[in-house]
C-alpha cells in the first residue's frame, strides 16, 4: 500500500474528529460558563457572579416543578421496571401463541415518532375522561397521574429490551441446580435468578428513569393546566427570553445526569465482574 495516501487521509480524519468534538462540546461549555456571567442576557462574559444560582433556588415554581418531575420519573420507573421485567421473562422463557405479535407491539413504542404517541395519549385521555364523566358523573383531570401513565407506556419497551439482554446470557443450569436441590420456583427466583439479573434490571430502570426525566413532548401533551413539570417550565421560560437562570438550572441538570450515568455504568460494570 502507498504510504503517503493513508497518512493524508488519517490526518483529515483526525481533523474532522477534532472539529466534531468542538461542535459537540461548544454548547455545553457555553452553557456552563455563562451560568456564571453577570451579563443579564447571558450571551456574553462580563464578570463572575453566583446570583443566577441564588435566584434559581428562590424560584419556588421551578423547585416545585423539579420535585414533580422527579416524582413522576421515580414512580413511572418503578412501575415500568416491574412490568417490563415480567414481560421480559415471559418473552425469554416461554413459547406461546401471539408471541410474535407481542414482540411487534413492544417494538412499535421505540420507533414511533414521539409526537404521535403524545397526541394519541392526549386524545385517548380526553375521550376516556369524557366517558367516565358521562357514566359516573365525575370528570378526572389531566395531571401527574396521566403523565405517569404515559411515561410508563413509553418506557416499558426500553426496560424489556435491556432486561431481555441479561436474561439471554443467563445460565439456565443454575436454576435447574437450585430446583434439584429442592428449591421451589419462588425460592429459585428469589435467591438465584433475581440476584444474577439484577444488574440488567437496574440498567433497565436507569434507562427508563433517564428517558422519563429527559422527556418533553409526551409530558407536554399529557400534563394538565394545574401541574407544573420541569421540562414544560423550561420550555415556557426559554420561549419567553434567554436568561442565565436557565443556564444555572441547565448546569445543575447536567451535573445530575452525568452523575446518574456514571452511577449506572458503575453498577453495570460491577454486575459484569461479580
Amino acid at each position: 500500500m502507498a504510504r503517503q495516501a493513508p497518512d493524508a487521509g488519517g490526518l483529515l480524519l483526525r481533523l474532522h474528529t477534532g472539529a466534531t468534538l468542538v461542535f459537540l462540546y461548544a454548547p455545553i461549555v457555553v452553557l456552563v460558563v455563562f451560568s456564571f456571567t453577570s451579563d443579564s442576557f447571558g450571551v456574553r462574559w462580563t464578570g463572575f457572579t453566583l446570583q443566577w444560582y441564588e435566584r434559581l433556588f428562590r424560584d419556588e415554581r421551578l423547585i416545585g416543578a423539579t420535585l414533580n418531575t422527579l416524582l413522576v420519573a421515580t414512580i413511572s420507573t418503578v412501575i415500568a421496571t416491574v412490568i417490563g421485567t415480567m414481560l421480559a421473562f415471559a418473552m425469554e422463557r416461554y413459547r406461546f401463541r401471539g408471541r410474535t405479535g407481542l414482540e411487534a407491539l413492544l417494538y412499535v413504542p421505540i420507533v414511533i415518532p414521539e409526537i404521535v404517541m403524545a397526541l394519541a395519549l392526549l386524545g385517548f385521555f380526553a375521550l376516556a375522561f369524557g366517558l367516565i364523566d358521562a357514566w359516573f358523573g365525575v370528570r378526572p383531570v389531566m395531571g401527574l397521574a396521566t403523565v405517569i401513565i404515559a411515561h410508563v407506556a413509553f418506557t416499558i419497551s426500553f426496560v424489556v429490551v435491556v432486561v431481555r439482554t441479561s436474561l439471554k446470557s443467563f445460565d439456565l443450569r443454575l436454576e435447574e441446580a437450585a430446583a434439584d436441590l429442592g428449591a421451589d420456583p419462588w425460592q429459585t427466583f428469589r435467591h438465584i435468578t433475581l440476584p444474577l439479573i439484577l444488574p440488567g434490571i437496574i440498567g433497565g430502570a436507569l434507562l427508563g428513569f433517564t428517558l422519563s426525566l429527559d422527556d418533553f413532548i409526551i409530558t407536554f401533551f399529557t400534563t394538565g393546566p394545574g401541574t407544573s413539570l420541569l421540562p414544560v417550565e423550561v420550555y415556557g421560560q426559554v420561549k419567553r427570553a434567554i436568561t442565565p437562570k436557565i443556564n444555572a438550572l441547565s448546569t445543575l441538570m447536567l451535573v445530575a445526569s452525568i452523575t446518574l450515568v456514571f452511577l449506572s455504568q458503575f453498577v453495570q460494570r460491577r454486575g459484569r465482574t461479580a
Binding site: 461548544a26 455545553i28 442576557f41 450571551v43 421540562p231 423550561v234 426559554v238 434567554i242 441547565s250 445526569s257
Partner: peptide, 19 residues
C-alpha cells in the same frame, strides 16, 4: 456525554451561541 443533558437545554445553548 453531551447527550445526557436535557435536549431542551441543548437547544437553548444554541440560542445563546447564535444570538
Amino acid at each position: 456525554i453531551p447527550f445526557w443533558t436535557n435536549f431542551l437545554v441543548r437547544t437553548y445553548a444554541w440560542m445563546i451561541i447564535l444570538s
